[in-house]
């Protein structure tokens, strides 16, 4: 995820609390690891038409503890490959949060996120400025800036580049 990605814009797909990684991508699809395949089955246990409903750039808005459960990186990979540009949640389970940062899927914590957005609201996110705009409701929400250490990983688009540049 690049903080200078200023053009994150799309409509909201809402998810409940405690969406676990089995719901995001169940084990029956973990016998493959190609992104496109995983993307095609993203969140189908929650909504079998998820992939038909979302377009490139759309944003997931979820309740608390998004991504709990298994450590499968296939979960953020599937979300990213489905075209989702950012996940906003009231809180994230820690392994999912790490994985998302590591592979460059923008993830943002926002208090009361579930209450602030409805399904299909138009939303625009400016990560550099830390601002989320709900265009449908004409509301602006400030987000907490990432800690310095994470910004370093984020600024090089993920952990692979960070490791390559700093740790080898």
């Amino acid at each position: 995820m690049n903080l200078n990605l200023v053009n994150l814009k799309g409509k909201v797909f809402k998810c409940p609390d405690n969406v676990d990684t089995d719901i995001i991508i169940p084990a029956k699809y973990l016998n493959r690891s190609d992104e496109e395949y995983l993307g095609q089955h993203c969140l189908e246990s929650l909504d079998e038409n998820f992939c038909k409903k979302v377009s490139k750039g759309d944003v997931i808005v979820a309740g608390k503890n998004f991504g709990c459960g298994s450590s499968r990186e296939h979960a953020p990979v599937a979300i990213k490959a489905s075209g989702i540009s950012c996940v906003i949640a009231e809180s994230f389970a820690r392994i999912f949060f790490r994985n998302a940062i590591n592979i460059g899927l923008p993830v943002v914590e926002l208090k009361n996120a579930s209450k602030l957005f409805n399904m299909s609201d138009e939303v625009e996110i400016n990560l550099a400025e830390g601002i989320i705009k709900n265009l449908t409701k004409n509301a602006i929400h400030k987000i907490q800036p990432f800690p310095e250490f994470l910004r370093k990983i984020i600024s090089v688009n993920g952990l692979v580049n960070f490791a390559r540049e700093n740790l080898l």
């Binding site: 990186e73 953020p76 994985n99 952990l159 080898l168």
Partner: peptide
């Protein structure tokens, strides 16, 4: 602690 595949790849490498 559990991590994802990219974190583990970095552990393997470094």
């Amino acid at each position: 602690t559990g991590v994802g595949s990219t974190d583990l790849a970095v552990v393997w490498a470094t």
